[in-house]
Structure formats: structure tokens, C-alpha cells
Design a protein around this nucleic acid. Structure first.
Length: 195
DNA sequence: GCCTGGATTGTCT
DNA sequence: GACAATCCAGGCA
């Protein structure tokens, strides 16, 4: 698989891919690949966050932490939460719009052993949560702001031709305390549960 | 400068 | 199923 990533039939997603609003971009990312930490994983769950959304970090405007969210689309926004976990987002929309798509879960495609090792040897639930995803793919604060449209980046998103699932499951977002009824969470149907 | 809440996870019962 | 762990950002005085 790694050789495939290095070949021409797997290409980085273009900047234009992320130019639309987060709720539009989010479902299109299902099935796409994340290349990070020497591993490749397929996206199975995402959530959209908009600036008018009380659950979004950009709701209160530009701050030192969320600067990346207000920057150009197609960049990685990594933030620290609950005192011990990192979450990875990809910025979308126009510059200054403060939108992002949270990467909630992936399944290993290549480098599974490495991901398991990073997850302290856990064979199950390798990356079925935002914090676990960052741990398995070694995504951290140093990756905040990297360009995911560039193959040479520490973290980038790729398209290997796999189409998004035709019947993605749409649900309200979870783990948040504001705007809990907004259906901006998308899951690949065959990958619910164990990742 | 202090206080509070948080886009979570792992462990224990 | 319930709860503790853990620490930073942001709000407020």
C-alpha cells in the first residue's frame, strides 16, 4: 500500500476540495486516506463545525488557539482537550470563515502494527475516536497548521479513487454540550463500531 | 491572576 | 454504566 501511495494513482486532495463549507466537505472525506506518521488510514467518521455553531471553537471569534481555523482551507487544526487528548481537524471554506471538519475515526490501511504500538499494543479500537486517531497516527501540536494538500507534509489527505459511501450514516454530533441536535456527523456505514 | 469547563479516554465495578 | 484523570484556553474580576 505504501508503494501505491508513492505512485501516481494516489494523489493529494486539492485546495479546491476544501473550499466549500464544512457540512459539504465533511461527507466527501469519508473513504479518503490520511497519510501521517508513516501510516495510512481510511477516514470513517467526521463532524462539521461552523463559526455560527456554539459547539465550534471559532464561535467566539479569532483567538490564539484557533488561528488556523480562520486561515486558508486545507490545513490541519490540532487542539488539546480534556487535559490529555489531541483532536485533528481540517480547515474548510474561505479564508477567515472559521470552519473545520473534525476527523473522528479512521481504519488502518498501512502501518497497522505501528498504529497498534502507538496505542500501547491495543489491537482493538485503534483509532475509533478523535484522541485515539491522533495517538495512532502520531498527530500532535507540532502538526498544527500543516498543509494537508501537499504530499510532502507531515500529515496529508489522499484520494485513491475510493468513492465516499453511497449511504453514509448522518447523526447529530456527540461529546458536545452545545447545538447537540445539528446533524453534522457522518459515518461510513460498514465501519461503525470497531475500527 | 484565578477559576471553570471541555469536540475524550481508560479503567473499574 | 459510571467515573476519574488531567491541563490548557478563555472568561472574568
Amino acid at each position: 500500500m505504501w508503494s501505491a501511495i508513492c505512485s501516481a494513482d494516489v494523489r493529494a486532495l486539492s485546495r479546491r476540495w476544501f473550499a466549500a463549507d464544512a457540512p459539504v466537505v465533511a461527507p466527501t472525506l469519508l473513504g479518503k486516506l490520511v497519510v501521517a506518521g508513516g501510516c495510512i488510514a481510511r477516514i470513517t467518521e467526521v463532524e462539521a463545525y461552523m463559526p455560527e455553531d456554539p459547539a465550534s471553537h471559532s464561535f467566539r471569534g479569532l483567538t490564539a488557539r484557533n488561528t488556523v481555523m480562520f486561515g486558508a482551507p486545507g490545513h490541519l487544526y490540532v487542539y488539546f482537550t480534556y487535559g490529555m487528548h489531541y483532536c485533528a481537524n481540517v480547515t474548510t471554506g474561505a479564508i477567515g470563515s472559521g470552519q473545520a471538519v473534525l476527523l473522528r475515526a479512521v481504519t488502518p490501511v498501512s502501518g497497522r502494527d505501528v498504529m497498534v504500538a502507538r496505542r500501547n499494543g491495543r489491537e482493538r479500537h485503534i483509532a475509533d475516536g478523535p484522541g485515539k486517531l491522533c495517538q495512532a497516527l502520531a498527530i500532535g501540536p507540532l502538526d498544527n497548521g500543516v498543509d494537508v494538500c501537499h504530499r510532502g507534509s507531515a500529515v496529508w489527505l489522499a484520494d485513491d479513487g475510493t468513492p465516499p459511501p453511497e449511504a453514509a450514516i448522518v447523526t447529530p454530533r456527540i461529546g458536545i454540550r452545545h447545538a447537540v441536535d445539528v446533524p453534522w456527523r457522518w459515518l461510513a456505514p460498514s465501519t461503525t463500531g470497531e475500527a
